[in-house]
């Protein structure tokens, strides 16, 4: 059953990542991979909130598997993030590569913490 929930969540998460990435990429003219960065930070915020809600007992393990392991897991990506960082280095854009790592990691951690703490605070 959990397998099915993960698969269904991911079947929504992966196309949603592509659509979000695309929506961001058409709105700027730089080589900085804002699309993947946005997707990852947004996914961290949602998963942080979900884990906070699950810890507070507000969300069942089934919903956590569906939306957490499935949807957020497939919505965010480490492989594309790493590959983009390498591509920026290969193009001699080392500063942008470093910026991509710092922005993605710091904003991702901040978003995860924000989601977790705000839901905890709401749950009292």
């Amino acid at each position: 059953m959990t397998w099915l929930l993960v698969i269904v969540g991911a079947a929504v998460g992966a196309p949603l990542r592509y659509a979000t990435d695309r929506a961001v990429q058409v709105r700027h003219l730089t080589v900085f991979p804002w699309g993947t960065c946005a997707v990852n930070v947004l996914g961290c915020l949602v998963l942080g909130a979900l884990v906070g809600a699950a810890d507070a007992g507000a969300v069942s393990p089934a919903v956590r598997s569906l939306l957490g392991t499935g949807l957020c897991g497939a919505f965010t990506t480490y492989s594309t993030f790493s590959y983009e960082t390498l591509r920026l280095c290969e193009r001699g854009r080392n500063g942008l590569a470093l910026a991509n790592v710092l922005v993605s990691v710091l904003a991702g951690l901040g978003a995860a913490a924000l989601g977790l703490i705000s839901v905890r605070w709401l749950a009292g």
């Binding site: 592509y18 998963l47 957020c72 492989s79 594309t80 991702g108 995860a112």
Partner: peptide, 22 residues
């Protein structure tokens, strides 16, 4: 799109990484 964006994108995860660190 199938193997890169789909399979590997779905396999790897940034959100679980960040939430686990937190």
């Amino acid at each position: 799109p199938f193997l890169g964006t789909g399979v590997l994108g779905g396999f790897t995860t940034f959100s679980t990484y960040a939430v686990d660190v937190v």
